[in-house]
Simulated assay, not measured.
Amino acid sequence: MAFPGTIAVSSPDFGDRTRMPDRFTAEHEDVAPVIEVTGVPADAVELALICHDPDAPIPHGWTHWTLFGIPADATTIAADIGREGITTKGEAGYSGPLPPPGHGDHSYYFWVYALSRPVAGEPTREEFLRDYADAVIEQNRVVGLYSR
């Protein structure tokens, strides 16, 4: 597994390590930002995206979005391009940032994984990392920040 290799991840909605606009948060419009990807390895058969907040005050952090079945040639990733899985909230779909007030900046990692085999179903973040680690060809991320 090579990371980051040639794969690059960004967002037209926020810069890497900059504050995410309010519209992408749970207390506002709660819409998923657009994620852009370039440099996907030629041998990738599928992409997966996971948005995770490791700063959440629970043992494994908080998973805000899982998206599987993204075509390997996709350059723009939005909610309608794949199969949305279950978040830590227990629901499918995007669940925007909502850190505890006064908890400081939280980092929201939008990881994109280039895979050598397709993902079956809609695994949780933990299931994906356990069951597909051997299929990750490359990975990279863009990180948004948010605090209340």
Rank of each mutant, 00 (worst) to 15 (best):
P12T: 05
T88L: 00
S147Y: 08
T38W: 00
H28T: 08
E46K: 08
S147K: 07
W62V: 01
D105I: 01
H28V: 05
A48Q: 04
E27Q: 13
A2D: 01
V143H: 08
L49Y: 02
P101A: 02
T25G: 11
S11H: 11
P41C: 13
A44M: 07
D53K: 02
A120C: 10
S10L: 00
P101C: 00
T87R: 04
P12V: 04
T18V: 10
D131W: 03
E36F: 01
L115W: 10
R148I: 08
R148F: 01
I7R: 01
D30A: 14
T25N: 09
R83T: 09
S116Q: 14
I35N: 07
Q139R: 15
G69W: 04
Q139N: 12
V136S: 06
F110S: 10
T75E: 14
Y113M: 05
G69I: 09
D80K: 05
S95A: 14
G121A: 04
K89L: 12
H60W: 10
I7S: 00
G144W: 04
R148K: 12
P97M: 06
A42I: 08
P118M: 06
G104E: 09
I77R: 02
Y108C: 02
L49V: 14
V143I: 15
P100G: 07
E138Q: 13
A133N: 03
V45H: 02
G39A: 10
G82N: 08
A56G: 06
I70A: 06
I86N: 04
L98W: 04
T87E: 05
Y132T: 12
E84R: 05
G5V: 11
P12L: 03
A26S: 11
T38H: 02
P99L: 03
L98E: 09
P41Y: 15
A2Q: 09
R141L: 11
M20P: 07
K89S: 14
P97C: 07
P99E: 06
L145R: 04
E138T: 11
P100K: 08
A8T: 12
S116M: 11
D43Q: 14
N140L: 01
S147N: 12
G5F: 01
V45K: 13
D134K: 06
D80G: 15
E36G: 04
V119Q: 02
G90Y: 09
N140C: 04
A78R: 10
A79Y: 01
